[in-house]
């Protein structure tokens, strides 16, 4: 069999089996002939080593066939998934909502910290306290802000992985229904590079320590400067219930 005979036979067989992108496939075999000819093989030898064009065409057909004729299964699988989606997508959205809550916490902590440091009191909402207490509270609030910002990072990252994992699951579910190949399940874990991961862990530990220490210290300093354990009553924060 010559090169042209082989290629036209392959083309015919591929057409018969309704394989797509026939030009692309023939190109690959033409290249194969070109390489082998350059190495000194004859067209007949090359064609013989390639194997039977009918068999090759069958392999291409086998690789792409299952995709076509499973419309029924696809519809059933798709309907099933639609019902699962009704529950899953709102659930995932709710998980994202927690990121919004943490972001709000971060913004609030920052506002309180800046207000105490700058001696501001927007809308008169912050309870008054001595300067030292205010500064310690500000530091505590900054630590809380760092914690909640990192919380947003971790939580959003994790939920995003969860979403991707679910989308991969959906894809594989449909692939199983239509008989095509499934992909690996998507792992739910953060892909933070190890160095960044260590840095973040350090920041979490420092912020956590600063927050706890700041909380205790605030209480202590306030109690001492007000001369009362329930210093918030001493400073009449809640409208003088005790006085």
């Amino acid at each position: 069999m010559t090169k042209n005979e082989f290629l036209s036979l392959l083309q015919k067989q591929l057409k018969q089996r309704e394989v797509e992108d026939i030009g692309d496939i023939l190109q690959e075999y033409e290249e194969h002939f070109a390489f082998k000819l350059r190495d000194g093989y004859s067209e007949e030898e090359i064609a013989a080593k390639l194997g039977d064009p009918g068999e090759i065409a069958a392999q291409y057909a086998a690789a792409s066939a299952p995709r076509r004729n499973n419309t029924g299964m696809k519809i059933i699988a798709g309907t099933g998934l639609a019902f699962v989606d009704i529950v899953t997508f709102p659930f995932l959205a709710a998980l994202y909502a927690f990121s919004a809550v943490l972001s709000a916490l971060a913004a609030a902590s920052l506002t309180v910290a800046v207000s105490y440091i700058g001696g501001l009191n927007p809308y008169g909402i912050l309870p008054p306290m001595p300067t030292l207490c205010a500064l310690i509270t500000a530091v505590t609030m900054l630590a809380l802000m760092a914690l909640s910002v990192l919380g947003v990072y971790f939580w959003t990252g994790l939920v995003t992985q969860l979403v991707k994992s679910y989308l991969r699951y959906r894809k594989n579910f449909m692939a199983a229904a239509s008989g095509s190949t499934k992909l690996l399940p998507y792992p739910v874990r953060l892909k933070t590079p190890p160095q960044l991961w260590r840095t973040l862990r350090k920041i979490v530990l420092i912020s956590l320590f600063a927050f706890v220490a700041g909380f205790v210290l605030t209480y202590a300093v306030c109690a001492i400067s007000a001369g009362a354990l329930e210093w918030w009553h001493a400073w009449n924060w809640f409208g003088g219930a005790l006085n």
């Binding site: 496939i25 690959e28 075999y29 194969h32 090359i46 080593k49 390639l50 194997g51 068999e55 090759i56 392999q59 291409y60 086998a62 690789a63 792409s64 095509s180 190949t181 992909l183």
Partner: peptide, 15 residues
Amino acid sequence: SDGTVYPILRKLKSD
């Protein structure tokens, strides 16, 4: 046979 690898490449691509 030399022809075996090309259909496999095709399948890997479509997967």
